[in-house]
Computed example of a mutant assay.
Amino acid sequence: MQGEAKTQPASSYTLTANKPDVFLVQEEDGVLYFHELQVDSWKTYNNQFLKVLIENSLNDTLLVYPESEENCAVFRSLQARHEDDCSIKLHEYRDTSPREGISVAFTVQKGRKSYLMNCTSDRTLEFQEGNAPSYIPGDRSEYIFYQKFFSEGDSAFSFESSLLAGYFLASKEENGLKKLALKKSQDQVDDNLRIQIK
Rank of each mutant, 00 (worst) to 15 (best):
E4P: 06
K6P: 13
P9K: 14
Y13D: 10
Y13I: 08
T14M: 10
T16A: 15
K19S: 15
D21T: 11
D21H: 10
V22C: 14
F23H: 08
F23V: 11
L24P: 02
V25H: 15
E28W: 14
D29T: 13
L32G: 02
Y33N: 11
F34L: 07
H35N: 14
E36P: 07
Q38D: 15
V39P: 01
D40M: 14
T44N: 13
N47Y: 14
N47S: 13
I54K: 00
E55L: 05
N56C: 07
N56I: 00
N56W: 02
S57H: 07
S57F: 14
N59G: 01
D60R: 00
D60I: 02
T61E: 08
L63S: 04
L63T: 06
Y65G: 05
E70A: 10
C72K: 08
F75E: 01
R76H: 11
L78P: 09
Q79S: 04
A80Y: 13
R81W: 00
H82I: 08
D85Y: 15
C86V: 12
S87H: 10
S87Y: 08
I88Q: 05
L90E: 08
E92A: 10
R94Y: 08
D95K: 05
T96H: 03
S97Y: 15
R99P: 00
E100H: 12
E100S: 08
E100W: 05
S103L: 04
A105D: 13
T107C: 03
V108T: 08
K110Y: 03
S114K: 06
S114D: 02
Y115H: 11
Y115I: 04
C119F: 04
S121H: 09
S121I: 12
R123H: 06
T124F: 06
T124W: 07
L125N: 04
E126T: 12
E126I: 08
E126V: 06
F127N: 03
Q128D: 13
G130T: 04
S134E: 11
G138P: 02
G138L: 03
D139I: 10
S141N: 02
E142K: 03
Y143E: 09
I144E: 00
F145M: 09
Y146H: 07
Y146I: 07
K148N: 04
S151K: 10
E152R: 09
E152T: 10
A156Y: 01
A156D: 03
S158Y: 03
S162T: 12
L163P: 12
L163Y: 14
A165Y: 11
Y167V: 00
F168D: 02
L169I: 03
S171E: 05
E173D: 09
E174T: 03
N175Y: 03
G176P: 06
G176L: 00
L177E: 14
L177G: 01
L180E: 00
A181Y: 04
L182I: 05
K183T: 05
V189R: 02
D190P: 07
D191G: 04
D191I: 11
L193Y: 06
I195V: 01
Q196L: 15
K198Y: 07
K198C: 12
